[in-house]
Amino acid sequence: MNRLLLALLIAGVGAGLIAGFMAVGGPGYARKERNDETRASDLRILGAYYRCQGDGFHDDSTVVERCSGQGRKPDPVDPVTGAAYVVIGPTGTRLEICAEFETRKLMGRTSGLSALFFDGQTGCVRYARKDPTDSWVLQ
């Protein structure tokens, strides 16, 4: 009886591990996911920088406070491939920064501050405003 239960234990854990590898992939895939997390973080940092640039660092005290630490431009280059991130804007009412992602993991982030828009493997952070004098709003 107990031998059968031990055999079932090994089978159950083995099945769980195989299903786990199928669901999340191996170490190579995990590295790609980590690279994608870095890219997503870079896009958000660049977004914050360009939004402040777009606002022009004018004398509005709220803008100055919000842009604290944004004086130096972050490196707009993919840390893995060395390719430059694609920056559209800031032009009037649109700002978009995009990178090529390696996995589909972040495609699930469709809402909140870390939301990304995907077209194939290209993921972007998007900001918009109704009028050039308005503040940027994350899409």
Partner: peptide, 17 residues
């Protein structure tokens, strides 16, 4: 969606291995 589940799955797999 494996967005939030990945780290939980990897941790559990590491423990079980």
């Amino acid at each position: 969606s494996q967005y939030r589940a990945s780290s939980r799955i990897r941790w559990a797999m590491a423990v079980l291995i």
